[in-house]
Design a protein around this nucleic acid. Structure first.
Lengths: 168, 168
DNA sequence: CAAAACTTTCAATAAGTATTGAAAGTATAG
DNA sequence: CTATACTTTCAATACTTATTGAAAGTTTTG
């Protein structure tokens, strides 16, 4: 397979995968583009490669920076900004986990804590089922939260070796 | 907080969380509804509780069955079908992992294997960056795949205790 | 077999999201 | 200060995805 065809396929696949994880297609494609690029790219470069508008390119680059997956690179003498993606996929995965934990898991835990307080009559089956489900979910979420937290705090080596142990 | 308010909040929260994981809001809400319900529910029950159409209810219940998160319950003498959700959240999590691995991780690995074959001139920086990124991603994905596979094959006890170890 | 009780399908449409592009904003250079 | 070289914003619009509801399909019952 030739390089151009390969790039095209990768952009496509990464975009599709992104969609099924709640990440918009274009954002995932911009990410893919930067991941496989040997050089930092300008907004114009991204616009050209993906055939998207300036506004779209700008907004998705911004979002990627927000997620901590892409960084700005300033070149002396050049006015425009260039963008580079973190290339180490372990770091990428860790960063995505870190962000999703903060954005989704933690808020969910706060809500579940509230919901554990629901009052119900003593023998109300409905109330009992609700409380039980919430408690079960809370227990799982908080275990997951603690585990992720430990993983993320530990240094890369620790993370890797634990992961290796887990897989035998 | 009263039961009704709690239910409402939970349906809302679970729906929102679903959306950010690429699961449609209604499907997540139907799941939430069954999770907290003490009894199996009919299509009509679901329609009423969530104010959705018959077609919508049917299609999302079907999708949940497809994901292995909900089962049918047939009652002797009754013609209509009733639906129950798996209530054990560990099992739910394992099932979601199992399905996503099959639906997303495995196809992605097949694509990455193809893309590792991309040909490029010896000193082509572009080609080199591409190959390196793909290889890196492949390595991570296949480690993840093996780990998940091991986790899922092992029995529940093993899974739980490994998980516990991981979190200290 | 016909009627009743359900479930499924699907074309039309509504609702939700992403994209565009031009205008406004900002920073640097001269 | 003004012109230039960018970046950001946002209302309009295009595109995608979800939902409806009535019709068609299926299964059970009498």
């Amino acid at each position: 397979m030739q390089l151009e065809e390969g790039k095209e396929k990768f952009l496509q696949a990464w975009g599709t995968l992104g969609s099924s994880w709640g990440i918009n297609r274009t954002m995932a494609q911009v990410h893919a583009l930067l991941l496989i690029s040997s050089e930092a790219m300008s907004t114009e470069d991204v616009m050209q490669e993906l055939n998207i508008s300036r506004g779209n390119a700008n907004m998705n680059l911004r979002a990627l920076i927000d997620w901590g997956l892409v960084g700005k690179e300033l070149r002396p003498g050049e006015r425009k900004e260039f963008f580079v993606a973190e290339k180490d996929m372990w770091k990428v995965a860790r960063q995505v986990i870190r962000e999703r934990r903060k954005r989704e898991l933690e808020p969910m835990l706060r809500i579940l804590e509230e919901l554990k307080q629901v009052e119900g009559a003593q023998d109300d089956k409905e109330a009992e089922a609700f409380t039980k489900a919430i408690q079960n979910l809370y227990d799982l979420s908080s275990k997951a939260d603690k585990t992720l937290n430990t993983m993320l705090r530990a240094d890369e080596h620790w993370f890797l070796s634990s992961f290796m142990k887990l897989m035998r």
